[in-house]
Computed example of a mutant assay.
Amino acid sequence: MTDRGPALPALRHQLVAAVLTLAAPGLQGDAFDPAPLLTTLFTEACDADDPLPWIGHTLRTAEEAALTADLGTALHTLRATLPPDPRPTDHLHSPAWPAVTTTAARLARLLVTNDHHAH
């Protein structure tokens, strides 16, 4: 792997933490709140709607960017199923939630693997 980042390691850390939390929200217990995770994924650490420009900043590879875009799509689908002012449990009980956790798990594995193998 050619290491192309991260130029913004603190934001990379936030991104990895957000994706891991989406992959396993049950580990958060009652503290699970998706709002800051969505902020991280769509504004602070990358733009899940257009992640390619983030390669070299918080994303390392085109594959990470592609999975980030997939996660963004899953999250938009989830949002479409939620009531106005959703509670955290509304997210977890949505029929669109399994696609979020599955996609986040795939991305989390790749992010951690790429960090482990970076030189």
Score class of each variant (00 low, 15 high):
A35M: 14
P25L: 11
L67F: 01
L22H: 09
G29I: 10
T68F: 09
A24Y: 10
D49C: 05
D33W: 02
R12L: 14
P6S: 12
W54V: 02
A74W: 01
T58H: 04
A23D: 06
G26S: 12
H57V: 09
E63M: 03
P6G: 06
L59A: 01
H13I: 15
H57Q: 15
D70S: 09
R12Y: 13
P53A: 05
T39M: 08
V19A: 13
T61N: 07
T21W: 02
A45H: 00
D30T: 13
A74M: 06
P53Q: 12
G29A: 08
A66C: 07
F32L: 07
E64Q: 03
T73A: 02
T58V: 12
Q28H: 06
D47Y: 09
L11T: 06
A62E: 06
V19S: 10
L8G: 07
T68A: 08
T39Q: 09
D49Q: 08
P51W: 01
C46G: 07
L37V: 05
T40E: 01
W54L: 13
D49V: 12
P51S: 02
A24C: 12
A74H: 01
F32K: 06
A45M: 11
A69V: 12
L27N: 08
Q28T: 08
L11I: 04
A31Q: 10
P25R: 06
E64W: 04
D70N: 03
F32V: 14
R12H: 15
V19F: 07
T61D: 05
G26A: 11
D49N: 05
P9F: 10
A31K: 06
R12E: 15
D49I: 10
L41M: 14
T21S: 13
P36F: 13
L75S: 02
T43S: 11
P6Y: 01
L15W: 05
P6M: 04
L71A: 07
L11G: 03
V16G: 11
A62Y: 03
T68R: 02
Q28P: 05
F32I: 13
V16P: 10
V16M: 14
P34K: 03
D47N: 10
T39S: 08
P25H: 08
A69R: 07
L52G: 07
P6C: 02
L37D: 00
T73Q: 05
L11D: 14
D47R: 03
Q28L: 08
T39P: 05
A65G: 00
L71G: 09
L75F: 00
A10N: 11
L71I: 10
T43K: 13
F32T: 15
E44A: 15
L75I: 04
A18M: 13
T73R: 04
L15E: 08
A10L: 13
T40N: 02
C46D: 09
G26C: 14
L71K: 03
A65P: 00
L67E: 01
L75W: 00
A74D: 02
P51H: 03
D47H: 09
A31N: 04
T73D: 03
T39W: 05
T40W: 00
A10I: 15
L37F: 03
P25Q: 08
F42Q: 11
A66R: 04
A24S: 13
E44L: 15
T58S: 05
Q14R: 15
P36D: 11
A35G: 10
G26D: 14
T58I: 05
L20V: 11
R12Q: 15
A65E: 00
L20D: 11
V16H: 13
D47F: 08
A74T: 07
V16I: 14
H13R: 15
G29W: 04
